[in-house]
Design a protein around this nucleic acid. Structure first.
Lengths: 356, 356
DNA sequence: CTGAAAGCGCTAACAC
DNA sequence: GTGTTAGCGCTTTCAG
């Protein structure tokens, strides 16, 4: 029988405990545990057996200290509950794993935490952060020191890397499509109270009136849509809702009630667009005959809805790939932090399915 | 100006570099960086400034080695792309973060990796693992040594903790509902080639014939459904598909073609049920009038579908909470590994919406 | 094949 | 207030 089989040690066993139990030096234990050469097979087995019995697990800290870490990347995400983010995360995790990196996630969507809180929480444990922070790029990069931060969908500021989306291009695609299909009473449903990048005073356009209920545009997405709409002199209304399908459903319900002439709705994201589709059904509206609906994101969810959602689609696996490769370049020193090469802009495609 | 402002050091700065630059001892640097008392404010600021300039970041390994780790938990997940898993992960991440734990995720759904691969990958970096491994409980627990493993939805074997679902109860709920609403030609769509726990030889029932195309039941879920169906002597057919909405749509399409008399379909999970709903629409079937559809999982997606999906719902936040609390107990020694208290069984609720 | 020394970067204790 | 001394648990030399 084994010398020590029972009793759960308060202190976990160390390499010395195993060495002592086996009557060998700690080197021999290292060699046995790590499959290193220069050790007799019988010794190795004996040591491994003892290690198992003692419940010995090498300290990842001691190991990391002496060997240099495998790289670990923080992933800061506002809400795992919005399918957009898992879709993105899935891609990041896959590519990162393939590189032998590990991903530490922080979903900061609960308990009133911010993207900056997430970075602060991650900072002590990671070598870099990729995140949708909703506007703390500078402070977050400061918290990370020299370790690279890649922000998505926000003003990059001092962040080492950034990925942005060309919403002007996207808005043009969608708005023009709506107009070309003869939609003349267009509404845009924006997300508010969101963790998405707000408009700064500079790019806040006082000429864009709040069309409904005195509320205004909240997001750069909204700004781009408004600009395009105004540019082609199309009357439109603005509504806003929290960034959930349920809230969007309610808001769109009110819209369809107040302005039954609405014949096209462009929506902040696909999840909210799903709510709009529901609201249209609630109101007895046929989509797209009575009213077209266009979402934004391109998440797989869109294809499961009825009618299937037309949307400004991002290739999310591609976005993830871009983030990971950018980080790789930054980490390797191949890309300079803050340089042009570290400032990516991706474009949406207009994917027409059934809803528009 | 600062003494060293440019040049990216190959070796990251250590506490000694900062101490040297500031002309103080490393202890003082520690005190400055960690907001510890017993240091002059001016010194603290000077040191912090220098640290920033040198790009100094305390080594998490050295820190962990000396302080004892914050606990880090691996989360092994088969596919972030199935909304079920992010919903679960969201809950786990929230509760874990609240405890100051960090979560390292591994989505093993890509590149032919298994749940065991995921655990092997996570093992060196974590103090425990929570995961849907799809059947490697014993080997995974062995890989973790004394560190607790909590497996979900599989035979727990030697895993320290486990969470299972009472599929017999669930199957009864759904099947009986279908029968009580006079569905007489019921089909069950099972997931195959899945990472879900297969039937072991012991619980494989040779009396359950393969009803369609020579394929058989793959999952314990399927077994429970089959048992209940047979028990109440209801004729039924079995079809199988890969665990995606698209595959389910194709499979269900074939079913509706081959057996147009089918008036009720029970589906392995909600994602696949979404595909079945699509297939029904493709076939011109009205749901639930012509054919009822019942899913399993209770993910929010179900409410966005048309018709809204009736389903055997799990409270996923609750499942996450159970996993985290169980792990907490295990880690604290309040719950003994493998004991009854570490073997949880949760139940589904039948949530009736529009599709059945 | 095995052991002894040295040191990774940090912080807890104690000095001063 | 600040510096000095000891390790944390492990792997890398380098000797035997």
């Amino acid at each position: 029988m084994s010398p020590i089989t029972s009793g759960r040690p308060a202190k976990p066993a160390t390499i010395l405990d195993v060495a002592a139990a086996a009557g060998v030096s700690r080197q021999t234990v290292t060699r046995a545990m790590n499959g290193m050469p220069g050790i007799k097979e019988s010794t190795r087995e004996r040591v491994q057996e003892l290690a198992r019995e003692l419940g010995y697990t090498p300290s990842r800290f001691a190991k990391g200290l002496v060997q240099g870490s495998r790289t670990s990347v923080g992933l800061a995400i506002p809400d795992l509950t919005n399918p957009y983010f898992p879709a993105f995360a899935s891609s990041v995790v896959e590519l990162a794993t393939r590189r032998g990196w590990q991903i530490v996630v922080d979903d900061y969507g609960h308990g009133g935490r911010s993207g900056l809180d997430a970075v602060d929480h991650l900072a002590p444990h990671v070598d870099a952060v990729i995140g949708y922070l909703g506007g703390y790029a500078d402070q977050a990069q400061a918290a990370l020191g020299r370790r690279p931060l890649i922000v998505l969908d926000e003003i990059p500021g001092g962040a080492a890397g950034s990925i942005n989306f060309d919403y002007n291009q996207a808005a043009k695609l969608a708005v023009d499509h709506l107009r070309h299909t003869n939609r003349v009473r267009i509404a845009y449903l924006d997300a508010c109270e969101s963790r998405h990048p707000g408009l700064t005073p500079e790019n806040q356009d006082p000429m864009v009136p709040s069309r409904v209920g005195g509320s205004g545009l909240c997001t750069v997405r909204g700004k781009a849509v408004a600009d395009r709409l105004d540019q082609i002199r199309t009357p439109w209304s603005l509504i806003t809702a929290e960034e959930t399908a349920g809230a969007a459903r309610v808001a769109a319900g009110a819209l369809f009630q107040d302005r039954p002439e609405t014949d096209g709705v462009l929506v902040f994201n696909d999840l909210m667009a799903a709510g709009v589709l529901k609201a249209a059904a609630d109101a007895g509206l046929r989509v797209p005959e009575d009213c077209a609906v266009v979402g934004m994101d391109g998440i797989p969810l869109g294809e499961l809805l009825t009618p299937e959602l037309s949307t400004l689609a991002l290739d999310l696996r591609e976005v993830g790939r871009a983030a990971v490769e950018l980080l790789d370049g930054l980490l390797a020193g191949a890309i300079a932090p803050g340089s042009d090469a570290a400032r990516l802009t991706l474009e949406h495609r207009l994917v027409l399915r059934e809803s528009a």
